[in-house]
């Protein structure tokens, strides 16, 4: 089995730590080896590239070179990290630029060669295949209606993300189906949650998030699932405020991709850190636990 250098991203090390823990738990369960790499730095998230374009490129060349040194591909759980690492790879196709950066990296025994792939957890599952996941499901999530929310930077722009980012991706729906739940089709599945202007223009972000949540609520979604740790921030952490901004109340738990797959694989919700979300996942956990008296540590709960 292939091994990956694990690049969780700054958000998964700060306010969405549960995504990091759930991912590690699920990949451990699936027997996929990931190596948390303490030398990795931030990808710059596009902001650094605006202030210091060349430094940003050198920074990401270093990140990728570290993975290449261990002959590993990079696995991330953040859409923004995915896009910006790939953007840097694209720019590093310029050989003179690459040589200039490599001259510096060489002093530390690092070399950017452009061989490591940068993939997202969603791509990892795509590579494994939904069928393979389906065969491993212990607790089918029958009866749950799940709205997929891809997040922008894993589907756009195509000239950087390549063929994996089809204009109408279906992998998330396939995965939802593989877990036994029902994927819902709605217009906002490829929409923007507004995260990147959250601190700059909160009002607009809340409107954008509430637009997505509105649609999800209208089609009767029990929960949303997203592969992006940043979308999770605007959809979960800001859900209450998004509701208030339009005079509504939403109550839609938002799960990280790894958490949804983990639940179906029979991993305890506690180990997937579902309890860390701001939108209560208590009913959801109850539903899953009710379904599964078989759950390994099936603690009895008083009625």
């Amino acid at each position: 089995m292939k091994e990956y250098a694990y690049f969780p991203g700054c958000a998964a090390e700060a306010s969405t730590r549960e995504a990091d823990r759930a991912t590690q738990e699920v990949l451990h369960h699936l027997g996929i080896l990931i190596h948390p790499t303490e030398e990795f730095s931030c990808c710059g998230a596009g902001c650094l590239a605006e202030e210091h374009p060349r430094f940003n490129l050198a920074l990401n060349a270093r990140n990728i070179a570290i993975a290449e040194g261990g002959e590993r591909d990079i696995l991330t759980i953040c859409n923004t990290c995915l896009l910006h690492l790939r953007k840097s790879q694209k720019e590093l196709e310029d050989l003179s630029l690459r040589a200039e950066i490599n001259a510096q990296l060489g002093k530390w025994g690092l070399q950017y060669q452009g061989e490591a792939k940068v993939i997202h957890l969603l791509h990892l599952f795509q590579e494994m295949g939904a069928e393979k996941i389906r065969s491993l499901v212990k607790i089918p999530l029958h009866g749950l209606k799940v709205a997929p929310f891809y997040g922008c930077q894993i589907v756009r722009p195509h000239h950087i993300l390549g063929p994996e980012s089809a204009k109408e991706p279906t992998i998330l729906e396939e995965l939802i189906e593989a877990t036994g739940a029902t994927p819902l089709h709605y217009r906002e599945r490829l929409s923007c949650c507004g995260f990147h202007i959250l601190l700059i223009d909160e009002k607009t972000t809340l409107s954008m998030a509430s637009h997505c949540l509105d649609e999800a609520q209208e089609i009767g979604a029990d929960l949303l699932v997203t592969p992006c740790t940043l979308c999770h921030i605007s959809l979960d952490m800001y859900q209450e405020q998004a509701g208030k901004s339009v005079g509504k109340r939403y109550d839609i738990p938002v799960l990280h991709l790894a958490q949804m797959v983990g639940l179906a694989l029979g991993i305890d919700p506690g180990k997937l850190h579902l309890q860390n979300h701001l939108v209560s996942t208590r009913h959801l956990i109850q539903k899953v636990r009710d379904k599964l008296p078989l759950l390994a540590n099936g603690r009895k709960r008083s009625p």
Binding site: T80, R156, P157, H159, K167, C192, I197
Partner: peptide, 12 residues
């Protein structure tokens, strides 16, 4: 100029 959510919709 700072109001861009980097959703890349315009790019595609």
């Amino acid at each position: 100029i700072w109001l861009c959510a980097k959703c890349e919709s315009c790019a595609v």
